[in-house]
């Protein structure tokens, strides 16, 4: 089983991180008019580095809690605050144009990660079929 997991490599974590990034950006867009809201983003490189060097805890009993790799990453501070280009009066650091551009790009990156994963799956399937 572990060989299949190795075969997928970091693609799985990458997809999850891309998803987290989309979530953070959607929060920024939803809070574009909230006073004192600070726009946040994911430091993707740092989060990916953590995902790569992660120690997986082994659950030895059924009621042991499993910590998802994502939670560890967020808890260990890969989320950063955005520095606004132009400060605003109500202390809100969301700049909607910037957020829209980043959201569009993050969506494309998500699709790219998905494509990599799909390629891996189709390769695995071919190997299993022995075509």
């Amino acid at each position: 089983m572990s060989t299949i997991k190795d075969y997928f490599g970091l693609n799985e974590q990458a997809l999850q991180l891309r998803n987290t990034r989309l979530e953070l950006l959607s929060q920024n867009i939803a809070n574009a008019a909230t006073p004192n809201y600070r726009a946040r983003d994911l430091d993707f490189a740092a989060a990916m580095r953590r995902a790569g060097s992660q120690v997986n805890l082994t659950a030895t009993a059924g009621n042991h809690m499993r910590q998802s790799p994502l939670q560890t990453n967020i808890a260990s501070g890969a989320v950063v605050f955005r520095v606004p280009l132009n400060p605003s009066v109500d202390n809100n650091t969301v700049e909607i144009g910037v957020e829209q551009a980043k959201f569009g790009r993050a969506a494309a990156e998500y699709q790219a990660s998905l494509q990599f994963l799909e390629n891996r799956i189709s390769g695995l399937r071919k190997a299993l079929r022995g075509e």
């Binding site: 867009i29 959201f103 969506a107 998905l114 994963l117 799909e118 390629n119």
Partner: peptide, 19 residues
Amino acid sequence: EVIKTSKDLMMRTLEIAKA
């Protein structure tokens, strides 16, 4: 727009098994 985009991504993710 955010909802539209995430809906599209969700549909694509569902189709991952068809690869």
